[in-house]
């Protein structure tokens, strides 16, 4: 029998993230994969990969909580779900206690969550119904510029003279990008302008507190956005070790809190709601 583990599954619009924690909230294993079109199958693959990294198996799962757009699609492992906003706040509450603003830039949306001194959610905001300030915006622009997504961070860093993009509409921004290409501007300067546009749109949503942490896939893969945010805010931004896993880890923390103290599960008796495969 292995030690009990707690699982958080974040089924995002772009990526599925699974985190496996022990009862003391230590990260034992994780996996990240493109969500694709079969959320359940992707979550199952990620779950097994994360458990393997954690040197555990499904029988060791004491509790599991899901989150993200596909949170209702993982009934094979759990029917307990929380919103990604709740999970991000929950992660932050334990990892970085105190008054703080969490900025999450994900594939489909971005979120600003504020916590009070006791780690309670004070307020939250999501982006409005456009793609500005989200990963989807950068994905669309990388296609327009015929650039691999993973090259964008390096290009932005190489920029000497950023192009300013003024619009908060993806379609209008695309037009601005085309205009700049026509005017002979360097691709690296345009990419930096796109990064600037993303972080500016997000920071416009609310007034951040003194302490700020950034999470989400966009900052995980484009670390230069951290630098730009720090420059704009005029102060350091907390950079978590696994920015993309914050939601999944927050879900796992919910699983721990729901279940209480660690125990050793009986593999023949799943002790959480839902059925094992």
């Amino acid at each position: 029998m292995s030690k009990s583990v707690y699982v958080g599954l974040d089924i995002g619009s772009s990526r599925t993230k699974v985190a496996v924690l022990d009862a003391d909230r230590r990260l034992l294993g994780y996996a990240i994969k493109k969500s694709g079109t079969d959320f359940s199958a992707t979550a199952s693959i990620c779950l097994d990969a994360a458990l393997e990294m954690a040197k555990a198996n499904r029988a060791a799962i004491a509790n599991a909580v899901s989150t993200g757009y596909g949170r209702a699609n993982v009934g094979f492992i759990t029917t307990h779900s929380k919103t990604e906003i709740g999970c991000l706040a929950n992660w932050c509450r334990y990892e970085i206690p105190g008054i703080i603003t969490l900025i999450d830039i994900g594939g489909q949306d971005n979120k600003i969550v504020k916590l009070d001194k006791d780690g309670r959610r004070d307020s939250f905001k999501m982006n409005r119904k456009c793609a500005a300030g989200t990963g989807a915006f950068l994905e669309e622009m990388s296609t327009r510029l015929d650039l691999p997504l993973e090259d964008m961070d390096g290009l932005a860093r190489a920029s000497k003279e950023m192009v300013k993009l003024g619009s908060y509409c993806t379609v209008f921004s695309a037009t601005e990008v085309l205009e700049n290409i026509r005017n002979g501007r360097k691709v690296s300067d345009i990419v930096k302008g796109l990064f600037y546009s993303v972080i500016k749109r997000v920071l416009e949503m609310d007034l951040p507190t003194e302490k700020v942490v950034m999470t989400g896939g966009v900052v995980a893969h484009n670390a230069y956005i951290f630098d730009m945010a720090e420059e704009m805010l005029g102060r350091p931004v907390i950079r978590p070790e696994f920015p993309q896993l914050a939601g999944a880890m927050g879900a796992a923390v919910y699983a721990i809190n729901e279940k209480g103290a660690s125990d050793t599960p009986d593999p023949s008796q799943p002790n959480f709601e839902g059925e094992l495969l």
Partner: peptide, 29 residues
Amino acid sequence: SGDLNDLRCISDEQTKTNIEAFIEQIVEG
């Protein structure tokens, strides 16, 4: 964000997440 009649102005998924997160916040508080 939404509209009284024009459903093109609505993201059901965003609305759902916002409402659930709001109620979570109230209950936890």
